[in-house]
Amino acid sequence: MNVKEYIQSGVVESYVLGVATEAERQEFEQLCATNPEIVEARNAFERSLEVQLMQDAIQPPAFLKEKIQLLIGSAGSETYQPEIIEEAPVRRMNVWKLVAAACFIALLGVGYWAYTSNEKYNDAVARQSSIEKELQQKNTQLAALEQDAGMMQKPGIKMAALKGTPNAPQALTTVFWDSTSKDVYLLVNNLPQAASDKQYQLWALLDGKPIDLGMLELQQNRLLVKMKNVQNAQAFAITLEPKGGSPAPTMTAMYVSGEL
């Protein structure tokens, strides 16, 4: 047989890559035993293949390494057992104890792994549901704010800036009055905190007469507070009244006022 031709025939590569037939494989292994040249050719191809594939490496995801190490942690003790059994059949009892211990340890390992994965899973589920809940809340809030913002831009809306009186020079509120639907909305820019037994009351003023527009109950995360409707108004004012409101405004406790 011409060794050079054999080497050139592609059989080396077939063998190394594992695509040789069973007969080719056996022949190749026999020839390797007596022909250093063939072994050399095989070695050279193996090295160039390895170099190429190492260059083309793609990093597997990081979690895999840990997972595999956990798996072989128990696999390692399994593969050791048969050897001990073969070598020392007289100490059968001890071997079985060892096997049992190894199985137990393996079981503990698996149990621990299952437990921690389950823990992690539960944590993740809990976190996800709380995030979902929060998202839903935020969405509701956003929708409300958008609704309020849209309200202020509606055609036919009239606006009155109510400025602070000497009672509270810094105070400022804004009334939006929808001339079509007659709805009244209040935007609180700045009002001092009311004492716990007091409450702000909004009034419309028409021809010098006050009309009660209701008590101010601030809602969280809303820009606008909807007050009572009013058919017409020339000005608005807010007074601080005992909780529940008064039939007529306490003029000395007026905090803001302004014309429409």
Binding site: M54, I58, K65, T79
Partner: peptide, 20 residues
């Protein structure tokens, strides 16, 4: 059954085998 050797083996060859 040297764990450390296995760690090395994995770090060194997992990328090439993964690619295949």
């Amino acid at each position: 059954k040297d764990d450390q050797a296995f760690g090395y083996l994995y770090d060194h060859y997992s990328g090439a085998l993964y690619s295949v």
